[in-house]
Design a protein around this nucleic acid. Structure first.
Lengths: 181, 181
DNA sequence: GGCACCATGTAATTGGTTACATGATTTA
DNA sequence: TAAATCATGTAACCAATTACATGGTGCC
């Protein structure tokens, strides 16, 4: 049903303070957004699966002033499985589908002015992304340095920052290259 | 059945000298590999679809010394559709699933020496990728500068080169950061 | 004889998203 | 009273890959 990586993404989040499907989704959308994404349609069934595997336990909690929720806790077996997954080699690099590059590949069929506009728009989106990463990094640096996870979280953000910056530079270079012609 | 982008990727390739399912696949694996990928399971049904839509025509060709093949040709209607697709705005940036970053996010559960090894391995793969891009770029510069497409193909390669380079830099920075501790 | 290359295709399966369904509480 | 937030879940659908199926030619 769910891929191994996705299972461990969810299991891993149980070690970061998230313990309901809802908070896991929030964390995904907030802090893992730049390299992992997941929908409720996967989260809830996978949490069940983790319990079935003995990697986590559930407890239904009644809350005052809020709906009931199911709290998940990672088990010793789950922690072991997580460490086992961590030591496995990282597989080959994935190919990213990039629609802008796909269009660019065929852009001799189009006027350069239009192509330039597209790259400009793309650059804007990259800049927004860059700023989002910066904001998250600042928040993390301020409020969570006591958190043992924070060092690694910042490193993943740095990846996003560095590669996004490179892409922005490429946009600028490419735009001036296309304007020359 | 097939997504719009994938349809146009295949249709676009019909304008670049590819005219069989087989050569389209080869081109994909060779020159579009860094931003688009496709399997035969999609190519052949999609080629049929393009003919159904009137975007392409087929002709069965008997070859001496080689198996028969089906040659596809883009139609005027197909070219118009391609240009229509090109002018459309590029949608929002996609999230790339990056397994290394996912593991890194949870790496406080692991010894730093192991984490460093993983990053080193990842760096190696990035370097191989970088060299592949360089080779393709050199080939392209040497043999296809007469090709009207080549300018754009090189630009897409530059994207790969620049962002891969940035990722390699991040690996180095991260490794030395983790060794300090 | 076997491997590499050329060439086409389909069925089963996978791994996921989207849309749907429900409902309590707080705040504007 | 409407919207936002908290909270859980499933069924239908989608786009793709993988595995399977077939077969000719050239070369070592």
């Amino acid at each position: 049903m769910t891929k191994e990586n996705t299972q461990f993404a969810i299991l891993g989040l149980l070690t970061t303070g998230c313990n309901t499907g809802y908070t896991i989704k929030q964390m995904m959308d907030g802090s893992l957004n730049h390299f992992w994404k997941i929908s409720y349609g996967q989260i809830y069934p996978t949490l069940k699966l983790l319990v079935d595997k003995g990697y986590a336990t559930v407890e239904e909690t009644k809350q005052e002033g809020k709906p009931d929720k199911k709290e998940y806790q990672i088990t010793a077996k789950g922690e072991e499985a997580l460490r086992g997954w961590l030591v496995n080699d990282v597989p080959n690099l994935e190919t990213i589908k990039n629609e802008l590059l796909l269009k660019l590949f065929f852009s001799r069929h189009q006027e350069n002015t239009l192509t330039i506009e597209h790259i400009q728009l793309y650059k804007q989106k990259l800049q927004e992304r860059y700023q989002t990463y910066e904001t998250i990094k600042n928040d993390l640096s301020k409020h969570h340095m006591s958190n043992a996870d924070a060092t690694f979280w910042i490193i993943t953000l740095d990846f996003g920052l560095i590669t996004t910056k490179a892409a922005i530079d490429w946009c600028e270079e490419t735009i001036s290259k296309l304007m020359e012609v």
